[in-house]
Design a protein around this nucleic acid. Structure first.
Lengths: 213, 213
DNA sequence: GTCTATAAAGTGATAGAC
DNA sequence: GTCTATCACTTTATAGAC
């Protein structure tokens, strides 16, 4: 809203910087960071390669900028969207909501590219591992675990180790997401895997809910 | 066994070829294929880079050879070890055996390297995706699914879609295996995740077994 | 089969005009 | 901020002596 932000967005330079990041993400995620040259990026943006150096110190800085975006992307924020305290969901609906948020990541172009970048660079880049582990895995599993613990207190679900349950709920979602991105890579149908997101919730809920027999 | 195999193994050339593959696997899996130079490989083997070309047409052929090894590695053969018809396991023991085989992959240096190579190259290399999908995912999920179907016939487990169950059993194992390889990368403790392999079987079995209430 | 030497192309990054 | 030009270096791969 403040006018200087609009000025920034309209200026040529800012548009180029954004464009460099967008092109780089697309190229890195489909060809890998190391296999992508600064010339590839420049061609994709529509400028000469030397122009990139007005916006980034070097090629690594482009990657680092993208990696930091992982933290604020949907990939690292499975909960926030529907976790507003007023309309907070309960029980199975809450799990279904998480599962759906997870599923939708694969169908947003930017999030999907960030996910592919994450997987490809996770063994080579310590910062990627750090963000994955801290902001994606640990945070979400702990949050999930405390929600499940609450449910045990309410007798909504049976008593069990919440951390194990959280891992059991989380891991198939991650795997299915990866499956979808692989199928899309080869332009294969994703419908069978997409349906597993809901079926996972059914299966999981059936095992933890307290009203038994 | 036969003497010509021993002669082969003793000859200088054969040893070099094996050494190139071993060094390449180690380097590719920890630094990535593209980031590893033929010089790196040659240095690791202890020969000059030009010597590599007496054994492989080019750098790509080294990768291709390693990729084909994925097919015959433990990664693609979760079942075979203990699936000898005579001493075939049943019910939960069978699932536990699969889980253990899975877990042990992460603790065999070569299998772990192949797994890391698989993950790193899966988005860049179509053949890797093909082997992953056909020989790792599809084959094992289908095999598992037919075993589960048998169990339903025997009334050992409750009636359900066997393919969904197979995916639900398979996906956490894959995820936990990846977690372990990431923890090892940073020399962190893996014990918490290692214990999840067994706990997953418990949790899963509890949900599918037929003797209820 | 391994070596030295070298070709041929690619790559990241900088300098300086506009 | 973008361009042309260029540098310094790396990388894959080949040629030919031993």
């Amino acid at each position: 809203m403040s006018s200087d932000i609009n000025l920034k967005e309209l200026s040529r330079g800012f548009k180029t910087k954004k464009s460099i990041l967008a092109s780089s993400l697309a190229l890195f995620s489909s060809n890998g960071f190391k296999a992508t040259t600064v010339r590839d990026i420049a061609n994709s943006v529509g400028v000469k390669q030397s122009a990139l150096y007005n916006h980034f110190k070097n090629k690594d800085e482009i990657l680092e900028t993208l990696i930091e975006e992982l933290m604020t992307s949907a990939i690292a924020n499975i909960f926030t969207p529907k976790d507003s305290p007023s309309e907070r969901l309960h029980g199975k609906s809450m799990l279904l909501s998480i599962s759906t948020t997870f599923k939708l990541i694969s169908f947003d172009i930017k999030n999907e590219a960030l996910f592919k970048l994450l997987i490809q660079e996770i063994y080579n880049n310590e910062r990627v591992r750090e963000i994955y582990n801290e902001y994606f895995y640990q945070t979400n599993v702990k949050k999930l675990s405390s929600i499940l613990f609450e449910m045990m207190q309410n007798d909504t679900i049976r008593s069990n180790d919440p951390l194990i349950l959280a891992n059991e709920f989380f891991s198939p979602l991650f795997f299915y997401q990866m499956q979808i991105s692989l199928l899309k890579q080869d332009k294969k149908s994703t419908s069978a895997v997409v349906s597993l997101f809901e079926k996972h919730v059914d299966f999981f809920w059936d095992n933890i809910k307290s009203e038994r027999c």
